[in-house]
Amino acid sequence: MIRHLAGKVGGALVSLLFVVALGFLLFRVIPGDPVVAMTRGRPVTGDQLAELRARLGVDKPLTEQFADYLAAAVRGDFGTSYVYSRPVLELIGERLWPTVLLTGTSTVLAVVIGLWLGIRGAWRRGSRSDRISTGLALAQWAMPTFWLGMLLSLATGDLFPSGGMRYPDTPSDFVSQAVDVAHHMVLPCLTMIAVVYAQYLLVMRSSLLEEMHADYLTTARAKGLRDDLVRRRHAVPNALLPTVTLVFLHLGLVVSGAITVETVFSWPGLGLLTYEALTGPDLPLLQGTFVVLAGAVIAMNVVADLLYRVLDPRVRAS
């Protein structure tokens, strides 16, 4: 177990290193001259360009740039934002918690709703409620997240605040602040749940359907178990295994959801920061958010793998 853990963490670290290197490739090598890419469509003088080049260190040869970049990245230094003129890591730190709050809440709710509806659908396959819930899930899956967000905000009118995380004039005590944040979070959270739960529903449903004909369910019925016990004790624990992996594999979906939802609702998180960085374009900032978002997904996958080991005795032993 310990050895496996070490192996997984080691593998994740290698992946993380790849991400950092990919960040360099994307933002320093592919654009040719990053400074030109960043100042495209803006009047800049030659002096300003030269100064920017020196600040980013892009006037040095690529190998030297890479070495500098790597050394800085290991220290957690992703340079200075071009738009904000502040360290990238500091900006990311500020924006991290709103994103964790939003994506965490909506993922947990989406998983609960999705799995519950998926189990119900598979067990009563072909019934009216199954057809409706599957059809609805497919339709929601087809919807672009941001469009749904805009529609929701259009439909609810002034019921919920359409942007930001809190009003500036809210009293500073904890309860008022919490209520205010929750009020702001309703629409973005609903939007994210609506799109993400569909995925979980479909995965859970098909994975339970695959277990439906398993021989051990016949054994359980032969023992005299009630239908709901057969489902709860025998079918669902087995069907959950592939679902867990897929839920975590689809975390990328949550991340992309966060980017568009935060953009639509001006939720001050990493997604909005990414959007601000790409409109700049503020390459150091975009690089930073890229590495952090990718790194977070990699870390969550390690968690998923460990969770899978706890859940599945077959993997646990090997």
Binding site: T218, A222, K223, G224, D312, P313
Partner: peptide
């Protein structure tokens, strides 16, 4: 009646036992 009066030894114990219990 199931199992108490009559029980079954299923074909292929590999699949007839629940892998996670």
């Amino acid at each position: 009646v199931r199992w108490a009066a009559a029980s079954v030894v299923f074909q292929g114990a590999m699949h007839a036992l629940n892998p996670v219990h």
